[in-house]
Design a protein around this nucleic acid. Sequence first.
DNA 1: CATCATTTTCGAAACGTTTCATCGTCCTCT
DNA 2: AGAGGACGATGAAACGTTTCGAAAATGATG
Lengths: 343, 343
Amino acid sequence: MLHVAEAARVSVATVSALINGTATVSPELSQRIEQAILDIGYKRNAIARSLKMGTTRTIGLTVPHITNPFFTDVVSVIQQAFDRAGYAVMLCCTDEDLNTQDDQIRLLLDRMVDGLIVARVGDGAILKRIVDDANVPVVLLDRVCEGVDTDSVVLDNQRAVFDAITYLIDLGHRRIGYISGSFDISPMHDRMTGYREALQAAGLPIESELVRFGNFHEVDGYNATMQLLSLHDRPSAIFSANNPMVIGTMKAIRDIGLSCPEDISVACFDDFPWSDVFQPQLTTVAQPVKAIGEQAANLLLDRLAGNRDAPPRKLTLKGRLMIRNSCRPLGAPMGAIVQSVSA
Amino acid sequence: MLHVAEAARVSVATVSALINGTATVSPELSQRIEQAILDIGYKRNAIARSLKMGTTRTIGLTVPHITNPFFTDVVSVIQQAFDRAGYAVMLCCTDEDLNTQDDQIRLLLDRMVDGLIVARVGDGAILKRIVDDANVPVVLLDRVCEGVDTDSVVLDNQRAVFDAITYLIDLGHRRIGYISGSFDISPMHDRMTGYREALQAAGLPIESELVRFGNFHEVDGYNATMQLLSLHDRPSAIFSANNPMVIGTMKAIRDIGLSCPEDISVACFDDFPWSDVFQPQLTTVAQPVKAIGEQAANLLLDRLAGNRDAPPRKLTLKGRLMIRNSCRPLGAPMGAIVQSVSA
DNA sequence: CATCATTTTCGAAACGTTTCATCGTCCTCT
DNA sequence: AGAGGACGATGAAACGTTTCGAAAATGATG
């Protein structure tokens, strides 16, 4: 900018005024400055600007795993929304690890991100403290925590799982295995509640041997399913509370020599783009990923636009049960299912 | 930092020296400073540091679509690698759009990213110019362009497709449909070459009606497949040169009332995590995504570590044909396949 | 004890912007 | 003609660091 000013024989203040339109500059000088900018190929340095202005037009986004299709889609939507608004997005993956998450959030705050969208991990206490003394708006995504009182957008997980389990019960299933992720994040807690309530509403017992915990990964789903399938009285259906884990479930079913849905019905949380193309077509709880991402982005953009003191807004969206052919009616003739498998 | 200095009754220079370890400071002052840092809760401002140092410890990463599983995985690996090295990653998705890409790269350079990893889109000319006068190291990912002479890591696309098509030919297929992405990026060009060469090597004609172009999206694969299947002499096999498009292919096959592999064999580029769980299990060309991401990260990290003048390093990795059950031998009894479908 | 070498500390400039108060200039109005 | 206003341009301070050369303190040496 100094060079531009010299070349145009004006002060840097004038160049800045012209570039930002913060003051009127005479046509004559404008022309000289614009020419100089072209000649020199000047580009404003965003870092210096950030330092002076106290804003970086950059936000931080942390998710547990970008390879989880749910987060892939949400990240994609959020990235697009901020791109449109002229913001850059710094992406971090916490790998479901608390320390990693804390480090990454600190890293982002050090870099003066203007806001944060966090699909948190673990206990909210540290997150709360970090966020409190960093003075940036935060939107919690997918996972809320009691202590932290900020904008958030989550799914009505309890209801969604309630509906899915009730669907299985209606099909005649009585022993329904449930594979949960770690219990310390809100969705897993709420989903489990939905499972229990659905059983209770149907007057079915809640048997702890039917509930298994994993750490969100495919291998966890595999191991949990192996355990469920080796019970002396094995479940006739399995619900997996997370998307990557259901892959493990399917692999376990295959490896043990059973097949879905003939021997065992399967449903899970989170839809796949290809779920209605391959067999079995999984019955899933689809989250409105697009809406979730856009709402989260809008909440943050609104804060960034200056609406700082509005009370926390907590959005809860509804999931949708996508009924396909991975769950079979118990006692019904196999024909209906088999026909659709080999169609 | 000023506050820390005052609280500890030292100069800012001393505080800086202690924090960075750039000079020895006496135990006494060290203690006072550390105490003050704790009392005040001081965090170094990375933006100011960046301005002074000319380095942000941030890199830019642009990919066409993060929802393409190939890029999802690569982004994930790259993000992890830079996280380990203490770098932040700014992620941009170009949506296969040239102008978007240029804008985003400029945005990243304005923010003084230390380096760039680019899975480019479109003609390399503009990219080359942008990159030339920004003085940051660039690694080209997946897609190279002739003009731009930088580090790169790509797949041996030609060979990979050659192998896949040859496999189909060996199964007895003679009319093999081919669905390509836009032709102006190197992998699509090379994959097409592999297709042609495989046909030629087998003495088969190259028929233009069997080749269709799409823009990488599911819907493009759908439309292309619809066209191929409505040819009066339809192909017995289809190869899709990209991953999202094959979903469209499968949907088209389903919608038209055919099934895979009984009526039509399908293979495609890029593996899915779930490809050996659901039916049909797709035969794919698997890219070594982990190696690709890590190599790209390493190339850039090496430049960032100071190795600036080394000649451009161009890495070419090998794909691997994952043979599953979505392609059937022509003329062979159906039994072998059907058995595995319903296994 | 004076001198010199070494270690520790510090003041100030610099990075590239933005912004604010000030200063000219030129009009317009009595 | 002098005063007051409007407008355009500018100099300088500030944002929060790092770094360099110089100053101060300390220790060693003759």
